[in-house]
Design a protein around this nucleic acid. Sequence first.
RNA 1: UGGGCUAUGGCCAAGUGGUUAAGGCAUCGGACUUUGACUCCGAGAUCGCUAGUUCAAAUCUAGCUAGCCCAGCCA
Length: 544
Amino acid sequence: MEIESNFIKTIMEEDLASGKVNGIVTRFPPEPNAYLHIGHARAIITNFELAKHFGGKTNLRFDDTNPVKEDSSFVEAIKEDIKWLGYEPANVFFGSDYFEITYNYAIDLIKKNLAYVCDLNQEQMRDFRGTLTEPGKDSPYRNRSIEENLQLFDEMRNGKYADGEKTLRAKIDMSHPNMNMRDPVLYRIIHITHHNTGDKWCIYPMYDFAHPLQDAIEGVTHSLCSLEYDDHRILYDWVVDNCETPHIPHQYEFGRLNITNTIMSKRYLKQLVDNNLVHGYDDPRMPTLTGLRRRGYTKEAIKSFVLGTGLSRINSTVSSEMLENAVRNDLNFKVKRVSAVLDPLRVVITNYPEGKIEWLDAPYNKDNEELGERKIAFSRNLFIEREDFIEEKPNKKWKRLALGVEVRLMFAYFITCNEVKYDDFGNIVELQCTYDEATKSGSGFDERKPNGTIHFVEATTSKKATFNLFEPLMIDSDSKRDLEERLNPNSWKEMSGFVEKAIENTTALERFQFIRKGYFATDYDSEADSLVFNRICELKSSFN
RNA sequence: UGGGCUAUGGCCAAGUGGUUAAGGCAUCGGACUUUGACUCCGAGAUCGCUAGUUCAAAUCUAGCUAGCCCAGCCA
């Protein structure tokens, strides 16, 4: 699948054509402090696909400039997610790889009288910064001599000062209409062990200073980020310009991808996990890549979904149906279609011999012969889906079983329901039916049309299974802003039924279409004697 | 008059002055069907508003309106 036309692709084409750049270099710069989600997938796919399209390359760069928040435990998880999506970075870098060179650039700025050490504390700095509509005031430390700044900054690096005691700030313009230009902090003091550099440093560069330099060092040509960094581009350019880096990268922003009934923010996802509202980051209901993977989504589906949503400078909210459609399209031809009964209702074929089991031929996927075929069992004792039976056929649109009605059991025979058995509470517990031997599947019988085709499973040979059915974890709401209020109490429904014998040896993440019930994937916790399947999504239906 | 960004059918999104404004998702018809699936046909917008420029504008200009982002020593 090719990445379609979008404004960034157009910019790259123009830059290549004009000779502004000789090749395309992009990067995906996650901060190693959270699991990747489907929103990140857009950034990953965009960066890699664009570079690939133009024969360029993409680096993976962990943006680890804040040891307070970051942790190496996320590094491997992030690498794995990217690999799962099918991408291989040209290089794997860490922002912390560049601390020395970043430090030297800071010294250059001091020497050019473009940066100074400031003693204002956080609160004072806020006061001096002004507001959105009022200009700020210069820091009293703004005019220290270059020599003094050099010495102070050296002392900062050497650990002479406590956290927050001093900062290094760019000297730009305290009355600039863009708040980012009001002498932004370049370096702050943090006495914490960094996951990569240990205790070597106690001063750490801010994103706005580090990021453009990292891009410049790596030769990134098009540094893609989300819309909220638009305001920062002016600073990005200021850094690159004043540090006089040999290579000049450029930043381009695009909108975030949101999905209906899906929460993507790190904070909320963490809250869900921490409050045990889900079973961890790989809960099949989570929009994390690890969650989607467990749910059964394929990388191909995620890619076609992301590519299908396009790219623009709008924060878009796409319908979750589009994601579902992407998996259905991907799985439709490439997966086995087998029978599973999620909510079993016993059926006895009264005119079929006791004890006899017959094995009938059935293709795994009639639209993909490569998947081969298997035998399915038929006997006197069967299970059908409880919802496929109703006592009295309500209207002619009802295409399932009813009293006195004949339907086809897929890949088997026509059966007619003659009698319903109830328990003491009036619940239907069994159907007494008869079958017609002449209607055997594949026999070419066409003397009458059945009322419809339903699926079934043979009672003694089928395997017990648990089916996890999902609904959105969160429900979109205009009025309910609170996370807990929006939580969907029905997001996880467990059913227990049977699957046909043919798939008894399934292993984790194998995907199937359970005929008429949807696409499912075998769960990590599935075992031979207790199969567990997660529903990826339902089949489309024009039936209400 | 703080600054920045955005505005194409229900949701995404092509389109960069000149055929009946691509495509996907959703929706509604209809055909087919051993999955009410798949597949196949068919249906919908004059492009936020207003005023201009032009033979010609979604595409250029101006004004207006609406929405989003920015006052972390987070990214």
